[in-house]
Design a protein around this nucleic acid. Sequence first.
DNA 1: ACCTGAACACCGTTCAAGT
DNA 2: ACCTGAACACCGTTCAAGT
Lengths: 224, 224
Amino acid sequence: MAETQTPRRSRGRPRTFDRERAARTALALVDREGLAALTMRRLARELGMGTMSLYRHFRDKDELLDAVVDLASREGIDQLALRGDWQARVRTLARALYDSLTRHPGLVQVRLSRPMLSPGALRLTDIAMQVLLDAGFSPRQAAHAYRALFLYTFGCAAFDGESDPAARVRLSAAALTALPADEHPAIARSIPALAETMDSKRHFERGIAMFIKGLEAELPDTRG
Amino acid sequence: MAETQTPRRSRGRPRTFDRERAARTALALVDREGLAALTMRRLARELGMGTMSLYRHFRDKDELLDAVVDLASREGIDQLALRGDWQARVRTLARALYDSLTRHPGLVQVRLSRPMLSPGALRLTDIAMQVLLDAGFSPRQAAHAYRALFLYTFGCAAFDGESDPAARVRLSAAALTALPADEHPAIARSIPALAETMDSKRHFERGIAMFIKGLEAELPDTRG
DNA sequence: ACCTGAACACCGTTCAAGT
DNA sequence: ACCTGAACACCGTTCAAGT
Protein backbone atom coordinates (compact mmCIF):
# COMPACT_ATOMS: atom_id res chain seq x y z
CA MET A 1 0.00 0.00 0.00
CA ALA A 2 2.71 2.55 0.97
CA GLU A 3 4.92 3.92 -1.74
CA THR A 4 8.07 1.87 -2.13
CA GLN A 5 10.73 3.82 -0.31
CA THR A 6 14.15 3.59 -1.92
CA PRO A 7 16.77 2.23 0.45
CA ARG A 8 19.08 4.83 1.99
CA ARG A 9 22.45 3.15 1.59
CA SER A 10 23.19 3.20 -2.13
CA ARG A 11 26.38 1.21 -1.76
CA GLY A 12 26.95 -2.16 -0.17
CA ARG A 13 24.19 -4.70 -0.75
CA PRO A 14 20.64 -3.44 -1.06
CA ARG A 15 19.71 -7.13 -1.44
CA THR A 16 17.94 -7.41 1.90
CA PHE A 17 15.47 -4.77 0.93
CA ASP A 18 14.32 -6.41 -2.29
CA ARG A 19 14.23 -9.85 -0.71
CA GLU A 20 12.07 -8.48 2.07
CA ARG A 21 9.68 -6.84 -0.33
CA ALA A 22 9.47 -9.97 -2.45
CA ALA A 23 8.84 -12.16 0.58
CA ARG A 24 6.12 -9.82 1.84
CA THR A 25 4.40 -9.75 -1.54
CA ALA A 26 4.68 -13.53 -1.79
CA LEU A 27 3.17 -14.00 1.65
CA ALA A 28 0.27 -11.73 0.80
CA LEU A 29 -0.27 -13.70 -2.39
CA VAL A 30 -0.33 -17.01 -0.52
CA ASP A 31 -2.80 -15.59 1.98
CA ARG A 32 -5.02 -14.26 -0.77
CA GLU A 33 -4.99 -17.16 -3.23
CA GLY A 34 -3.24 -20.10 -1.62
CA LEU A 35 0.14 -21.70 -1.98
CA ALA A 36 -0.51 -22.89 -5.53
CA ALA A 37 -0.80 -19.28 -6.67
CA LEU A 38 2.76 -18.55 -5.59
CA THR A 39 4.77 -19.12 -8.75
CA MET A 40 7.92 -17.35 -9.81
CA ARG A 41 6.15 -15.97 -12.84
CA ARG A 42 3.17 -14.70 -10.91
CA LEU A 43 5.23 -13.14 -8.13
CA ALA A 44 7.45 -11.38 -10.64
CA ARG A 45 4.40 -9.95 -12.38
CA GLU A 46 3.06 -8.84 -8.97
CA LEU A 47 6.37 -7.08 -8.31
CA GLY A 48 6.38 -5.49 -11.74
CA MET A 49 9.56 -7.15 -12.92
CA GLY A 50 10.54 -9.81 -15.41
CA THR A 51 10.36 -13.38 -14.15
CA MET A 52 14.07 -13.88 -14.39
CA SER A 53 14.82 -10.81 -12.34
CA LEU A 54 13.61 -12.73 -9.30
CA TYR A 55 16.55 -15.06 -9.75
CA ARG A 56 18.90 -12.23 -8.97
CA HIS A 57 17.54 -12.20 -5.42
CA PHE A 58 16.79 -15.88 -4.90
CA ARG A 59 18.80 -18.82 -6.18
CA ASP A 60 15.62 -20.74 -6.81
CA LYS A 61 12.04 -21.09 -5.64
CA ASP A 62 13.10 -22.98 -2.56
CA GLU A 63 15.17 -20.04 -1.37
CA LEU A 64 12.19 -17.78 -1.93
CA LEU A 65 10.05 -20.10 0.19
CA ASP A 66 12.70 -19.98 2.91
CA ALA A 67 12.43 -16.21 2.99
CA VAL A 68 8.63 -16.32 3.13
CA VAL A 69 8.70 -18.89 5.93
CA ASP A 70 11.18 -16.83 7.91
CA LEU A 71 9.04 -13.73 7.49
CA ALA A 72 5.96 -15.58 8.72
CA SER A 73 7.92 -17.07 11.63
CA ARG A 74 9.01 -13.65 12.89
CA GLU A 75 5.51 -12.20 12.84
CA GLY A 76 3.87 -11.53 16.16
CA ILE A 77 6.74 -12.93 18.17
CA ASP A 78 8.22 -9.61 19.20
CA GLN A 79 4.95 -8.24 20.52
CA LEU A 80 4.52 -11.24 22.79
CA ALA A 81 3.66 -10.07 26.30
CA LEU A 82 4.37 -12.84 28.78
CA ARG A 83 2.94 -12.59 32.28
CA GLY A 84 1.83 -14.76 35.14
CA ASP A 85 3.26 -18.08 36.26
CA TRP A 86 5.09 -20.37 33.87
CA GLN A 87 1.88 -22.25 33.10
CA ALA A 88 0.25 -19.05 31.84
CA ARG A 89 3.37 -18.18 29.86
CA VAL A 90 3.50 -21.57 28.18
CA ARG A 91 -0.17 -21.20 27.28
CA THR A 92 0.47 -17.78 25.77
CA LEU A 93 3.43 -19.09 23.79
CA ALA A 94 1.49 -22.05 22.47
CA ARG A 95 -1.40 -19.85 21.38
CA ALA A 96 0.96 -17.42 19.71
CA LEU A 97 2.54 -20.22 17.71
CA TYR A 98 -0.82 -21.66 16.79
CA ASP A 99 -2.11 -18.26 15.70
CA SER A 100 1.03 -17.56 13.72
CA LEU A 101 0.64 -20.87 11.90
CA THR A 102 -3.05 -20.55 11.17
CA ARG A 103 -2.75 -16.90 10.10
CA HIS A 104 -1.12 -18.27 6.92
CA PRO A 105 -2.85 -21.60 6.31
CA GLY A 106 -1.32 -22.04 2.89
CA LEU A 107 2.13 -21.95 4.43
CA VAL A 108 1.79 -24.64 7.08
CA GLN A 109 2.87 -27.49 4.83
CA VAL A 110 5.88 -25.52 3.67
CA ARG A 111 6.88 -24.75 7.24
CA LEU A 112 6.46 -28.40 8.15
CA SER A 113 9.06 -29.49 5.63
CA ARG A 114 11.69 -27.13 7.01
CA PRO A 115 13.71 -27.42 10.21
CA MET A 116 13.07 -24.74 12.80
CA LEU A 117 16.49 -23.19 12.36
CA SER A 118 15.65 -19.91 10.68
CA PRO A 119 16.28 -16.72 12.68
CA GLY A 120 12.55 -16.07 12.99
CA ALA A 121 11.79 -19.53 14.36
CA LEU A 122 14.71 -19.36 16.79
CA ARG A 123 13.40 -16.20 18.42
CA LEU A 124 10.41 -18.15 19.63
CA THR A 125 12.59 -21.07 20.65
CA ASP A 126 14.70 -18.83 22.85
CA ILE A 127 11.70 -17.24 24.53
CA ALA A 128 10.09 -20.62 25.20
CA MET A 129 13.31 -22.13 26.53
CA GLN A 130 13.72 -19.15 28.85
CA VAL A 131 10.26 -19.67 30.29
CA LEU A 132 10.85 -23.37 30.86
CA LEU A 133 14.34 -22.96 32.34
CA ASP A 134 13.07 -20.26 34.69
CA ALA A 135 10.28 -22.63 35.75
CA GLY A 136 12.93 -25.02 36.99
CA PHE A 137 13.17 -27.55 34.20
CA SER A 138 16.55 -28.88 33.17
CA PRO A 139 17.78 -27.97 29.67
CA ARG A 140 16.99 -31.50 28.52
CA GLN A 141 13.49 -31.47 30.00
CA ALA A 142 12.85 -28.02 28.61
CA ALA A 143 14.10 -28.94 25.14
CA HIS A 144 11.90 -32.02 24.89
CA ALA A 145 8.94 -30.18 26.32
CA TYR A 146 9.29 -27.35 23.84
CA ARG A 147 9.76 -29.74 20.96
CA ALA A 148 6.64 -31.69 21.93
CA LEU A 149 4.62 -28.50 22.23
CA PHE A 150 5.98 -27.26 18.94
CA LEU A 151 5.20 -30.46 17.03
CA TYR A 152 1.75 -30.89 18.53
CA THR A 153 0.88 -27.31 17.67
CA PHE A 154 2.05 -27.84 14.12
CA GLY A 155 -0.10 -30.93 13.84
CA CYS A 156 -3.15 -28.99 15.03
CA ALA A 157 -2.47 -26.13 12.65
CA ALA A 158 -1.85 -28.44 9.71
CA PHE A 159 -5.21 -30.12 10.05
CA ASP A 160 -6.91 -26.86 10.79
CA GLY A 161 -6.84 -25.88 7.15
CA GLU A 162 -8.87 -23.11 5.70
CA SER A 163 -12.35 -24.54 6.15
CA ASP A 164 -14.88 -23.43 8.73
CA PRO A 165 -14.50 -25.47 11.96
CA ALA A 166 -18.27 -25.92 12.37
CA ALA A 167 -18.53 -27.25 8.84
CA ARG A 168 -15.70 -29.67 9.50
CA VAL A 169 -17.37 -30.92 12.66
CA ARG A 170 -20.62 -31.45 10.78
CA LEU A 171 -18.90 -33.21 7.90
CA SER A 172 -16.99 -35.51 10.21
CA ALA A 173 -20.10 -36.43 12.15
CA ALA A 174 -21.84 -37.30 8.90
CA ALA A 175 -18.92 -39.42 7.68
CA LEU A 176 -18.68 -41.26 10.98
CA THR A 177 -22.42 -41.87 11.12
CA ALA A 178 -22.35 -43.35 7.62
CA LEU A 179 -19.83 -45.94 8.79
CA PRO A 180 -20.95 -49.57 9.25
CA ALA A 181 -21.37 -49.56 13.03
CA ASP A 182 -20.56 -53.23 13.59
CA GLU A 183 -17.12 -52.83 12.04
CA HIS A 184 -16.33 -49.72 14.09
CA PRO A 185 -17.96 -50.29 17.47
CA ALA A 186 -15.74 -47.91 19.44
CA ILE A 187 -16.26 -45.11 16.95
CA ALA A 188 -20.00 -45.74 16.99
CA ARG A 189 -20.07 -45.06 20.74
CA SER A 190 -18.17 -41.79 20.39
CA ILE A 191 -19.33 -40.05 17.25
CA PRO A 192 -20.23 -36.64 18.74
CA ALA A 193 -17.04 -36.58 20.81
CA LEU A 194 -14.87 -37.51 17.85
CA ALA A 195 -16.53 -34.97 15.59
CA GLU A 196 -15.97 -32.26 18.21
CA THR A 197 -12.23 -32.82 18.13
CA MET A 198 -12.25 -31.63 14.52
CA ASP A 199 -12.75 -28.12 15.86
CA SER A 200 -9.00 -27.70 16.07
CA LYS A 201 -8.88 -24.53 18.13
CA ARG A 202 -11.08 -26.00 20.85
CA HIS A 203 -9.22 -29.27 20.84
CA PHE A 204 -5.97 -27.36 20.98
CA GLU A 205 -6.99 -25.56 24.17
CA ARG A 206 -7.73 -28.90 25.80
CA GLY A 207 -4.50 -30.40 24.54
CA ILE A 208 -2.45 -27.52 25.90
CA ALA A 209 -4.11 -27.84 29.29
CA MET A 210 -3.24 -31.53 29.35
CA PHE A 211 0.29 -30.79 28.21
CA ILE A 212 0.81 -28.36 31.06
CA LYS A 213 -0.60 -30.87 33.54
CA GLY A 214 1.99 -33.35 32.26
CA LEU A 215 4.75 -30.78 32.68
CA GLU A 216 3.69 -30.01 36.25
CA ALA A 217 4.00 -33.69 37.11
CA GLU A 218 7.55 -33.69 35.78
CA LEU A 219 8.67 -30.76 37.91
CA PRO A 220 10.50 -32.09 41.01
CA ASP A 221 9.17 -29.65 43.58
CA THR A 222 6.06 -27.62 42.94
CA ARG A 223 6.39 -24.09 44.22
CA GLY A 224 6.75 -23.86 47.98
CA MET B 1 6.62 -58.20 -8.69
CA ALA B 2 3.90 -60.86 -9.08
CA GLU B 3 2.21 -61.25 -12.46
CA THR B 4 -0.90 -59.14 -12.68
CA GLN B 5 -3.75 -61.53 -12.05
CA THR B 6 -6.87 -60.71 -14.02
CA PRO B 7 -9.87 -60.11 -11.78
CA ARG B 8 -12.32 -63.00 -11.52
CA ARG B 9 -15.63 -61.19 -11.85
CA SER B 10 -15.81 -60.02 -15.45
CA ARG B 11 -19.09 -58.17 -14.90
CA GLY B 12 -19.92 -55.48 -12.39
CA ARG B 13 -17.19 -52.94 -11.82
CA PRO B 14 -13.58 -54.12 -12.02
CA ARG B 15 -12.72 -50.57 -11.09
CA THR B 16 -11.46 -51.42 -7.63
CA PHE B 17 -8.80 -53.65 -9.03
CA ASP B 18 -7.26 -51.11 -11.37
CA ARG B 19 -7.47 -48.37 -8.77
CA GLU B 20 -5.71 -50.61 -6.28
CA ARG B 21 -2.94 -51.45 -8.73
CA ALA B 22 -2.52 -47.79 -9.69
CA ALA B 23 -2.37 -46.73 -6.05
CA ARG B 24 0.20 -49.40 -5.24
CA THR B 25 2.38 -48.42 -8.17
CA ALA B 26 2.05 -44.76 -7.23
CA LEU B 27 3.04 -45.46 -3.63
CA ALA B 28 6.10 -47.41 -4.75
CA LEU B 29 7.03 -44.52 -7.02
CA VAL B 30 6.74 -41.99 -4.20
CA ASP B 31 8.87 -44.20 -1.95
CA ARG B 32 11.49 -44.62 -4.64
CA GLU B 33 11.74 -41.08 -6.01
CA GLY B 34 9.71 -38.78 -3.81
CA LEU B 35 6.37 -37.07 -4.11
CA ALA B 36 7.48 -34.81 -6.94
CA ALA B 37 8.03 -37.88 -9.14
CA LEU B 38 4.37 -38.81 -8.87
CA THR B 39 2.81 -37.21 -11.92
CA MET B 40 -0.12 -38.47 -13.93
CA ARG B 41 2.10 -38.84 -16.98
CA ARG B 42 4.80 -40.73 -15.15
CA LEU B 43 2.43 -43.05 -13.35
CA ALA B 44 0.61 -43.87 -16.59
CA ARG B 45 3.92 -44.73 -18.24
CA GLU B 46 4.80 -46.90 -15.23
CA LEU B 47 1.47 -48.70 -15.64
CA GLY B 48 1.97 -49.11 -19.36
CA MET B 49 -1.04 -47.07 -20.38
CA GLY B 50 -1.74 -43.72 -21.98
CA THR B 51 -1.82 -40.76 -19.64
CA MET B 52 -5.47 -40.11 -20.25
CA SER B 53 -6.44 -43.68 -19.41
CA LEU B 54 -5.73 -42.86 -15.78
CA TYR B 55 -8.62 -40.44 -15.86
CA ARG B 56 -11.00 -43.32 -16.38
CA HIS B 57 -10.14 -44.52 -12.88
CA PHE B 58 -9.57 -41.22 -11.08
CA ARG B 59 -11.43 -38.00 -11.62
CA ASP B 60 -8.23 -36.03 -11.13
CA LYS B 61 -4.87 -36.18 -9.40
CA ASP B 62 -6.41 -35.37 -6.07
CA GLU B 63 -8.56 -38.48 -6.22
CA LEU B 64 -5.47 -40.51 -7.04
CA LEU B 65 -3.70 -39.05 -4.01
CA ASP B 66 -6.72 -39.99 -1.88
CA ALA B 67 -6.37 -43.59 -2.99
CA VAL B 68 -2.64 -43.61 -2.28
CA VAL B 69 -3.16 -42.10 1.17
CA ASP B 70 -5.85 -44.63 1.99
CA LEU B 71 -3.59 -47.47 0.91
CA ALA B 72 -0.78 -46.20 3.09
CA SER B 73 -3.16 -45.68 6.01
CA ARG B 74 -4.34 -49.31 5.92
CA GLU B 75 -0.82 -50.72 5.92
CA GLY B 76 0.32 -52.49 9.04
CA ILE B 77 -2.86 -51.73 10.96
CA ASP B 78 -4.39 -55.18 10.63
CA GLN B 79 -1.31 -56.97 11.89
CA LEU B 80 -1.32 -54.87 15.04
CA ALA B 81 -0.94 -57.15 18.08
CA LEU B 82 -2.08 -55.31 21.18
CA ARG B 83 -1.19 -56.74 24.58
CA GLY B 84 -0.55 -55.62 28.12
CA ASP B 85 -2.23 -52.80 30.01
CA TRP B 86 -3.72 -49.81 28.26
CA GLN B 87 -0.49 -47.87 28.62
CA ALA B 88 1.38 -50.53 26.64
CA ARG B 89 -1.37 -50.63 24.05
CA VAL B 90 -1.34 -46.88 23.56
CA ARG B 91 2.42 -47.01 23.15
CA THR B 92 2.10 -49.75 20.53
CA LEU B 93 -0.56 -47.80 18.67
CA ALA B 94 1.48 -44.63 18.68
CA ARG B 95 4.55 -46.42 17.37
CA ALA B 96 2.52 -48.13 14.67
CA LEU B 97 1.18 -44.79 13.48
CA TYR B 98 4.61 -43.20 13.59
CA ASP B 99 6.13 -46.09 11.64
CA SER B 100 3.34 -46.06 9.12
CA LEU B 101 3.90 -42.34 8.55
CA THR B 102 7.67 -42.49 8.28
CA ARG B 103 7.60 -45.57 6.05
CA HIS B 104 6.44 -43.22 3.30
CA PRO B 105 8.15 -39.92 4.06
CA GLY B 106 7.11 -38.38 0.77
CA LEU B 107 3.49 -38.87 1.69
CA VAL B 108 3.38 -37.17 5.09
CA GLN B 109 2.58 -33.74 3.76
CA VAL B 110 -0.20 -35.13 1.60
CA ARG B 111 -1.69 -36.99 4.53
CA LEU B 112 -1.49 -33.84 6.63
CA SER B 113 -3.71 -31.94 4.26
CA ARG B 114 -6.48 -34.55 4.39
CA PRO B 115 -8.93 -35.28 7.17
CA MET B 116 -8.58 -38.66 8.81
CA LEU B 117 -11.86 -39.92 7.41
CA SER B 118 -10.71 -42.51 4.90
CA PRO B 119 -11.57 -46.15 5.66
CA GLY B 120 -7.93 -46.98 6.29
CA ALA B 121 -7.46 -44.16 8.78
CA LEU B 122 -10.69 -45.01 10.56
CA ARG B 123 -9.57 -48.58 11.24
CA LEU B 124 -6.83 -47.17 13.45
CA THR B 125 -9.20 -44.69 15.03
CA ASP B 126 -11.55 -47.45 16.05
CA ILE B 127 -8.81 -49.59 17.56
CA ALA B 128 -7.40 -46.65 19.51
CA MET B 129 -10.80 -45.57 20.78
CA GLN B 130 -11.50 -49.13 21.90
CA VAL B 131 -8.29 -49.20 23.93
CA LEU B 132 -9.06 -45.87 25.58
CA LEU B 133 -12.71 -46.63 26.31
CA ASP B 134 -11.72 -49.98 27.82
CA ALA B 135 -9.20 -48.16 29.98
CA GLY B 136 -12.05 -46.24 31.54
CA PHE B 137 -11.95 -42.92 29.70
CA SER B 138 -15.15 -41.26 28.68
CA PRO B 139 -15.84 -40.94 24.94
CA ARG B 140 -14.97 -37.24 25.13
CA GLN B 141 -11.73 -37.85 27.02
CA ALA B 142 -10.81 -40.68 24.68
CA ALA B 143 -11.56 -38.65 21.56
CA HIS B 144 -9.42 -35.71 22.64
CA ALA B 145 -6.65 -37.99 23.82
CA TYR B 146 -6.57 -39.85 20.52
CA ARG B 147 -6.68 -36.64 18.56
CA ALA B 148 -3.76 -35.20 20.54
CA LEU B 149 -1.74 -38.37 20.10
CA PHE B 150 -2.57 -38.43 16.41
CA LEU B 151 -1.61 -34.81 15.79
CA TYR B 152 1.57 -34.97 17.84
CA THR B 153 2.65 -38.11 16.00
CA PHE B 154 1.98 -36.42 12.68
CA GLY B 155 4.10 -33.48 13.73
CA CYS B 156 6.98 -35.76 14.66
CA ALA B 157 6.73 -37.69 11.42
CA ALA B 158 6.48 -34.54 9.32
CA PHE B 159 9.73 -33.13 10.68
CA ASP B 160 11.39 -36.50 10.57
CA GLY B 161 11.87 -36.24 6.85
CA GLU B 162 14.16 -38.44 4.87
CA SER B 163 17.50 -37.32 6.27
CA ASP B 164 19.66 -39.28 8.70
CA PRO B 165 18.77 -38.38 12.32
CA ALA B 166 22.41 -38.19 13.41
CA ALA B 167 23.18 -35.78 10.59
CA ARG B 168 20.22 -33.65 11.57
CA VAL B 169 21.37 -33.52 15.18
CA ARG B 170 24.86 -32.51 14.09
CA LEU B 171 23.54 -29.87 11.70
CA SER B 172 21.24 -28.38 14.32
CA ALA B 173 24.00 -28.21 16.90
CA ALA B 174 26.18 -26.38 14.40
CA ALA B 175 23.43 -23.93 13.50
CA LEU B 176 22.65 -23.23 17.16
CA THR B 177 26.32 -22.79 18.04
CA ALA B 178 26.73 -20.28 15.23
CA LEU B 179 24.00 -18.14 16.79
CA PRO B 180 24.93 -14.87 18.55
CA ALA B 181 24.81 -16.12 22.15
CA ASP B 182 23.81 -12.83 23.76
CA GLU B 183 20.66 -12.60 21.66
CA HIS B 184 19.65 -16.17 22.46
CA PRO B 185 20.74 -16.78 26.04
CA ALA B 186 18.33 -19.61 26.79
CA ILE B 187 19.26 -21.46 23.62
CA ALA B 188 22.94 -20.98 24.42
CA ARG B 189 22.48 -22.83 27.73
CA SER B 190 20.73 -25.76 26.05
CA ILE B 191 22.38 -26.43 22.72
CA PRO B 192 23.14 -30.14 23.14
CA ALA B 193 19.69 -30.81 24.59
CA LEU B 194 17.95 -28.91 21.79
CA ALA B 195 19.99 -30.63 19.10
CA GLU B 196 19.12 -34.03 20.58
CA THR B 197 15.42 -33.37 20.15
CA MET B 198 16.01 -33.33 16.39
CA ASP B 199 16.40 -37.09 16.56
CA SER B 200 12.67 -37.44 16.09
CA LYS B 201 12.31 -41.12 16.96
CA ARG B 202 14.04 -40.68 20.31
CA HIS B 203 12.13 -37.53 21.09
CA PHE B 204 8.93 -39.29 20.11
CA GLU B 205 9.52 -42.05 22.66
CA ARG B 206 9.93 -39.45 25.37
CA GLY B 207 6.89 -37.55 24.20
CA ILE B 208 4.74 -40.67 24.24
CA ALA B 209 5.88 -41.51 27.76
CA MET B 210 4.92 -38.02 28.89
CA PHE B 211 1.61 -38.24 27.05
CA ILE B 212 0.74 -41.47 28.86
CA LYS B 213 1.68 -39.92 32.20
CA GLY B 214 -0.73 -37.12 31.42
CA LEU B 215 -3.47 -39.60 30.57
CA GLU B 216 -2.93 -41.50 33.81
CA ALA B 217 -3.44 -38.32 35.77
CA GLU B 218 -6.76 -37.78 34.01
CA LEU B 219 -8.13 -41.22 34.88
CA PRO B 220 -10.44 -40.89 37.92
CA ASP B 221 -9.40 -44.08 39.75
CA THR B 222 -6.18 -45.84 38.97
CA ARG B 223 -6.56 -49.60 38.94
CA GLY B 224 -6.73 -51.45 42.17
C1' DA C 1 27.71 -5.27 -15.04
C1' DC C 2 23.06 -5.71 -14.81
C1' DC C 3 18.70 -7.30 -16.47
C1' DT C 4 15.45 -10.29 -18.97
C1' DG C 5 13.03 -12.55 -23.16
C1' DA C 6 13.09 -16.84 -25.68
C1' DA C 7 13.43 -21.51 -25.20
C1' DC C 8 13.48 -26.17 -22.91
C1' DA C 9 11.59 -29.77 -20.54
C1' DC C 10 8.23 -30.46 -17.88
C1' DC C 11 3.06 -30.25 -15.54
C1' DG C 12 -2.64 -31.41 -15.13
C1' DT C 13 -6.44 -31.59 -17.82
C1' DT C 14 -9.89 -30.74 -21.94
C1' DC C 15 -11.51 -32.20 -26.03
C1' DA C 16 -12.04 -34.43 -30.05
C1' DA C 17 -10.68 -38.13 -32.73
C1' DG C 18 -9.64 -42.83 -33.04
C1' DT C 19 -11.17 -48.07 -32.42
C1' DA D 1 -18.61 -47.84 -25.45
C1' DC D 2 -14.05 -47.58 -24.47
C1' DC D 3 -9.55 -45.63 -24.94
C1' DT D 4 -6.06 -42.06 -25.89
C1' DG D 5 -3.16 -38.61 -28.72
C1' DA D 6 -2.96 -33.73 -29.68
C1' DA D 7 -3.47 -29.45 -27.75
C1' DC D 8 -3.93 -25.79 -24.11
C1' DA D 9 -2.50 -23.20 -20.46
C1' DC D 10 0.43 -23.47 -17.29
C1' DC D 11 5.21 -24.56 -14.43
C1' DG D 12 10.76 -23.74 -12.87
C1' DT D 13 14.92 -22.79 -14.79
C1' DT D 14 18.92 -22.33 -18.41
C1' DC D 15 21.08 -19.67 -21.55
C1' DA D 16 22.10 -16.29 -24.50
C1' DA D 17 21.03 -11.90 -26.02
C1' DG D 18 19.93 -7.32 -24.95
C1' DT D 19 21.23 -2.59 -22.50
